[in-house]
Nucleic acid binder design. Structure first.
Lengths: 241, 241
DNA sequence: TGTACATCAGTGAACGCGCGTTCACTGATGTAC
DNA sequence: TGTACATCAGTGAACGCGCGTTCACTGATGTAC
């Protein structure tokens, strides 16, 4: 029976070993993510091994250290959030800028609400003693890319009304120019700075909601509140029209 | 000599014991806060005792458990942040609404920048397995009280222009009414909802700055960026004029 | 002012756990001829 | 297709640590008379 399965598996992974390795790697990560919910970012390799029915040292065949496992989780989370949000935005007519913005905001929030501990991992307090390696940067910027694209496209479509740039302090203009340059350099500083506001606002709302800052006061109609805040921000940026 | 000191101390604390107890309690908390920076919210009573040159069980004379110590820290932090911000706002002419708002925002950020791990404790990811008791609510609401007062006073001064309330969805209005009722009930929902935006924005900016979300992109002129965002929010709420 | 008793801070040992990581090893799987 | 050798997943023991909390105790400080 194992041999039969082996042949079947060879279609997807070169060898049985490679396939099993892939599966176990995922299972370790899945268990680790369940641990996140209960214990936060203080993963216990021994507890994971126990749950797998393995000896603790066996986990080292899959991840060279606890921090590497943590990095893998972080990258997965960024990618899942990125993918979910890209998909949400992707279903909207590209010319519908307000729709894209709403899809962006709700996409992020929906993922966060269904994966609260994962959201906390990537957007909560930094893990003490952990230094995120370069590999996390790409996945982490998938969501910001979406918003930059939205603004670029808006500019291309002539969406934003002209504004006097020199109202903005020089130092802020410099920062905005740096961000803008990441997205082709077409976004005016005055638009960018409001985009930053909106971007921060979205994550601020989600963080406050998930971390309990709205508890007992603002937590009864959070969907509607979030949606309305999104719409106000769209107006503020100039995406509503 | 000890006896002499004892008499002197009796002026502030009834007995030597009471005085020493007070001092040691503070010292334990001080050491715990230093631990926060290095290890996050996973306090180690044994490490604290070690640093005090005491046996680990001695700490239990001061705090009945680790969670109680954590609660004490959280309350202290809320109070310090509250006091610092109240003081910052208090130095401004009460009729200068923009000034009060700027003092509020910068007050919070200044404290956060000088106490990053303490800020993470109270505004970062919830500590797994820890349930904040009722005693934290009062201290925690000191900052929000400031902003509610600011809005109330603004209303009393006729600062805000009339706006159609019925643009706001019913569900959001209900939430806003609940918040408003905490502050005497004079703040219109349309003002309140923008106040929430601004409030979330302030903490969102600080959280992103401290937790490294601006790293390598927006971190060179953060003072100016924050200040400008504050001013935009003031305008958005209607405090700027 | 002096003595008797009560309070309570700090000790030291113990309970019953936990952890990450290394290393020599067995035995199954995979590869090359 | 069959055999020889290489790879590598998982074992089990060990190293050297860590932790919160309880409890009976000593001895100093505080209180009441």
């Amino acid at each position: 029976m194992l041999t039969k399965r082996c042949y079947a598996l060879q279609m997807t992974a070169r060898t049985l070993r490679a396939r099993v390795r892939k599966e176990l790697t995922s299972e370790i990560k899945a268990i680790a993510r369940r641990q996140l919910a209960a214990e936060g970012a203080n993963l216990s390799l021994r507890a994971i091994a126990r749950e797998l029915g393995m000896v603790s040292s066996a986990v080292y065949r899959y991840f060279p250290s606890r921090d590497d496992l943590l990095t893998a989780l972080i990258i997965d989370c960024y990618n899942e959030l990125g993918e979910a949000t890209e998909h949400a935005v992707g279903t909207v007519d590209p010319a519908d800028f307000l729709g894209r913005w709403l899809a962006f905001g709700h996409g992020i929030r929906d993922w966060a609400l269904t994966h609260p501990s994962e959201y906390a991992l990537i957007y909560g307090s930094p893990v003490p003693g952990y230094q995120a390696p370069q590999d996390t940067i790409g996945p982490a910027s998938r969501t910001t890319t979406l918003i930059l694209d939205l603004l670029s496209d808006g500019v291309a479509a002539g969406l934003f009304t002209e504004e006097e740039q020199n109202q903005i302090p020089e130092a802020v203009r410099v920062e905005m120019a740096r961000v803008t340059s990441l997205a082709g350099g077409t976004i005016p500083e005055s638009v960018m700075v409001r985009g930053v506001t909106a971007w921060v606002q979205v994550f601020g709302m989600i963080t406050f909601e998930l971390f309990g800052r709205f508890a007992n006061v603002l937590d009864e109609h959070s969907d509607e509140l979030f949606d309305y805040q999104l719409r106000m921000m769209a107006e503020h940026v100039g995406l509503a029209r």
